[in-house]
Design a protein around this nucleic acid. Structure first.
Lengths: 110, 110
DNA sequence: ATTATTTATCGTAATATTGCAATATATAAA
DNA sequence: TTTATATATTGCAATATTACGATAAATAAT
């Protein structure tokens, strides 16, 4: 197989999983953090910043973009990437909600 | 390849990526949500709840456990799984921090 | 027009993931 | 002890991911 059965789960569950999967690699976490740290949304510097080859970085950027976590805009010959605030906000809300629900429960085991 | 170069990134980045990767599959998101929803941390009901075969569910549970997101305790012949509050709290803090940092920045492109 | 610069895509090798049937393990009940 | 119940492990096929060299595409500068 190797094929995720997305149709068996809710749209929301798939949405969350897709975004988290995109961040399920240290290079992509590093890219996100770099884009946030640098206050302009600088682009190909990511390649210099990361210890990975240019095609590899490009591929990671594509995955982040496909998952909706970053956006890119053409800036002359370069491309300017930046974080999609909405999607990050969505994840933030998701975990905030979960934490809230967890706070109420008292554990009966574990 | 197919091999993540974890040594090239920070411990924190790897830690976050590992947990998010574990949640990067709708079945595992569904398991987390189910464990939170059911206020006792019931175990093998997960198999009935999810539209996946028992070995598949067992495997997903293992991945969540390895990533530290859930814990399991033996309860007679059954095993009782529940969410590890600390790790969820860690993720919650992570995204809260990112959101805060993002709020300050004004976008220069995208 | 030619050349340099920047980013994307292709091709490919190594490895990982997903899913499940079959089977093993381990405890509870009879 | 035998049988039932619950969960884990093994083995395997199909597919996905990771990484990068080589190359393409697209714009800027000369």
């Amino acid at each position: 197989m190797g094929l995720t059965k997305t149709d068996l789960f809710t749209v929301k569950q798939n949405e969350i999983a897709t975004m988290l999967k995109a961040l399920g690699h240290p290079a992509r976490v590093a890219i996100l953090e770099y884009l946030i740290r640098v206050d302009s949304c600088i682009c190909g510097d990511i390649v210099d910043e990361l210890p990975l080859a240019q095609p590899t970085v490009s591929q990671h950027l594509k995955e982040l973009k496909t998952a909706g976590l970053i956006k890119g805009s053409i800036e002359g010959t370069a491309i300017c990437y930046c974080v999609d605030k909405e999607s990050v906000s969505l994840l933030q809300s998701y975990f905030a909600g979960i934490s809230l629900q967890l706070a109420d429960k008292e554990k009966r085991c574990c």
